[in-house]
Amino acid sequence: MRHGRRLFVFTFLVPPLALYAVFVLSPYLQAFQISLTNWRGLSPTYEYVGPENFTRLLHDHYVWNALKNNAIILVALPIITIVLALFFASMLSVGGQSGKAGVRGVRGAAFYRIVYFFPQVLSVAIIGVLWKEVYAPRSGMLNGFLRGIGLDGLAKPWLGDPDLAFWCVLAVMVWSNVGFYVVLFNAAMQSIPREIYEAALLDGAERGETLRKITVPLLWDTIQVAWVYLAILAIDAFAIVQIITEGGPGNSSDVIGLRLYGDAMNESKFGYASAIGVAMFFLTLSIAVVSLRMTRRDRIEL
């Protein structure tokens, strides 16, 4: 039996591990190595140039321009998304009529939970293409709506304006994420006893106060996780930007992921692109650590 056990463990572990090593582990390790070379991909030869790519990175104003946009997303996306999601989730679970039956969710809560989740099941490609058409200057839904209600003056070439394009993309990111966090927060709120809200309301607390003083502290763990996930999304942001604006007009909506992709795939600067990848990795890691630290609070057990 002992021999059978070893053979079993071996045959079950080797295929997944081999696949994982070839396609995941080795590329990750190679990325660090390539980031120290001047590999351009035209020839198989390259030289180690040490930290040169990283010093060049620090002086690349395209990179800084992209990073600025990532930084804005990093602040705006989690805050707007979490605030909206908490607001909707708490209305769904405790926003209903509170009469004799106590504190309840609003009528139709199940319906809202289904509908709000729609964007989450769609591919970023569909969402990007769809919103590109929504923002289209002549045939788009948004300008069509504004003209329809007589606000022709507000109809704009949304994605053609360097001052607006970036914000339009950010709006799409918020739009596509809020629903997921409504469902997530709503699920977490189910574990908060109704009586706490009833007692607070009897004591004369306002709804806003119960959200701030009861819901948020009790959901803090979930909010923290949401924050980290949204931060990771903010540092990536590649797909949605590439599809909607391709970073334009005039790099106004560029993000760091798009820099990496362009340098690697269009200009074959593999060494430099890998250096951007390594920088993104450390950025993601430190932001995850910092946001977990900053948002640390004492856990409240019920």
Binding site: V22, F23, V24, S26, P27, Y28, Q30, A31, I34, I232, I235, D236, F238, G257, L260, Y261, A264, F270, A273, S274, G277, V278, M280, F281, T284, L285, A288
Partner: peptide, 14 residues
């Protein structure tokens, strides 16, 4: 923990 981005260039060649 790793962003897919980090792997893209080497993955292409693998």
């Amino acid at each position: 923990m790793f962003p897919v981005f980090l792997a893209l260039v080497p993955l292409f060649f693998v």
